[in-house]
Amino acid sequence: MAKLQGLLFGLATLVLVVVATAFFAKEWLPPLKSDRIAIDHGIAVTLLVTGLVFIATNLLLAFFAWRYQDAPGATAAYWHHNAKLEWIWTLVTAAIMFGFLFNALAMWGQLQKAPPADAMLVEVVGQQFAWNVRYPGKDGIFGRTDAKLVDPGNLNFIGLDKTDPNAADDVIMPQNQLYLPEGLPVRVRIRSLDVIHSFFLPNFRVKQDAMPGMAVETWFTPKVAGDYEIACAEHCGLGHYRMRGQLHVVKPDGFDAAVAAALE
């Protein structure tokens, strides 16, 4: 019985390694459609390193479970420290972790750096349970908004102050419709009207919480024209699951026409 347990444990661990590796070899990430390839590279490198550690340590565990079982005549070593060995694996681990850390911080720096000056500006405002999209118009400045002016009946979901001169050319899209031009960097200003939402574009490796009381910007460049989904990634109430928006990436020369058509 005991013999069986060790063998079973070894085999189970082996199966885990094989099946897990086989599944990780598949393509799971949603196809990348933005310039954030660095994140995919980071995932690939991390998968490779942690995958190797996963395989090595689990195989050791499986081997030990099978090899060092109690048997007649078996003895255990009285061996409880080895400073050299311990320092080696501590320092090697630390070195690997610092490698990851520097890589991660460099990536993070790239993603957080100031957007190009010619980036297009768009605002996305989350509310229970929809995304409001607004373009600043030709002046490039968003008009004032005020909570008191929110009027869903007249489709003024974000409370735009129409007396503000900057608001005159603001373009408010039908809810949940975001249009972006292909190949141009875009700055998304993310806000929320009520609770925390999270603006998630799975295909673009973009996720940013819409934090009430704050306007947070993130920027990226859509690379491939097409229709994609906007998801809410932060629990925001009972309709969280259906807070789904649509992102249409269109060719730059057809952008204005597409927006105009959507406004019809």
Binding site: G42, I43, T46, L47, N58, F100, M107, Q110, P202, A233
Partner: peptide, 28 residues
């Protein structure tokens, strides 16, 4: 032994999540 196994499997994914940039995709 199960704890050791889970500690390995669950610990390694922490390295994925701890990298700020990768967490953009994995968060929530």
């Amino acid at each position: 032994m199960g704890v050791v196994s889970l500690f390995i499997s669950g610990g390694l994914s922490g390295i994925w999540l701890g990298q700020t940039a990768l967490d953009i995709h994995f968060h929530d």
